[in-house]
Nucleic acid binder design. Structure first.
Length: 268
DNA sequence: ATAAGTGTTGCGCA
DNA sequence: CTGCGCAACACTTA
């Protein structure tokens, strides 16, 4: 379940470890995660030198002098640095560097490891469509994006083409902090609610980044983050008291996903 | 052992 | 075009 905070942490670690290294070999055990035939994918990357890494929405982008290796872990997965020893059991794509280090990439369900030529991120079918990154989103952006629309606020926050980076794990606390019900129609939000929502997005994502990401995900070194249940306000806390008013936290169906809310603090 | 739960695309319906 | 539900992908944990 990696979302924006975990990817921020990962991209920063990738930058620290990989910049300057040259890719020597690429192995693929699950070709369907690629956007190119295996041979073309490998040919594009072998010989490339890493020059950076950054986060965009839920994508971790590794920049080389020959283009990008773009990773999206989908419903969970691991990107691990391996120094000596065997690759972890579950590896799907492995990248070997000229100093012997390897990157072992695996996916819990579905994921993507794409090669994108230099300058072509904007025309990538998924990355090119990403909206404003959640971390740099202000209340004015939010109002402009969804203020006039009639659908549910939660679906817009999860829509990566509008706002990139928020997933169904962090959204519970974001909506709680803003005092908004997930099914609330976006065009009924007041200016102060948009302000609170923008602040909530920023605060919850930042809090997790500062703790190295969530305890349910591992970083480049296989270590879990420290942002856990005790940091959550209502998320995954069905039956427990609301930290603000004491009412019992409820788990409700919101379309095809579930939501955790305080039924008193988050009126429809 | 069955089911839920995460992300993304793509399709069909109103 | 808009909003929304659903299926597909085929894994991990309860």
């Amino acid at each position: 379940m990696p979302e924006l905070p975990e990817i921020v942490v990962l991209a920063s670690q990738l930058r620290g470890e990989l910049v300057g290294k040259r890719i020597e070999a690429v192995r693929v055990r699950q070709p369907k995660v690629l956007n190119l035939p295996e041979a073309e994918f490998a040919q594009a990357l072998v010989g490339a030198t890493v020059i950076g890494s950054e986060q965009r929405g839920k994508w971790a982008l590794i920049e080389t002098d020959r283009g990008w290796l773009a990773l999206n872990q989908g419903l969970g997965g691991e990107v691990l640095l391996v120094r000596g020893g065997d690759l972890p059991e579950k590896w799907r794509v492995a990248i070997a560097f000229d100093d012997g280090d390897r990157l072992a990439i695996s996916f819990a369900w579905v994921g993507h490891a794409h090669y994108v030529p230099p300058g072509a991120l904007a025309s990538h079918p998924m990355i090119g469509k990403l909206g404003v990154d959640a971390l740099s989103l202000g209340a004015d952006d939010l109002r402009a994006l969804v203020g006039g629309r009639r659908g549910r606020i939660k679906s817009y926050l999860l829509d990566q083409s509008l706002i990139a980076g928020i997933g169904n794990a962090y959204i519970h606390d974001i909506l709680f902090m803003a005092g908004l019900h997930p099914l609330r129609a976006a065009n009924t939000l007041t200016d102060s609610e948009f302000d609170a929502l923008a602040r909530a997005i920023h605060d919850s994502l930042r809090a997790s980044i500062e703790k190295g990401g969530s305890v349910w995900d591992v970083d480049l070194y296989g270590r879990t983050g420290a942002y856990g249940p005790e940091d959550m306000l209502v998320g995954y806390k069905a039956g427990q008291p609301c930290p603000r008013c004491g009412a019992q936290i409820a788990k409700i169906k919101t379309g095809s996903t579930s939501s955790y809310i305080c039924p008193r603090c988050q009126a429809t």
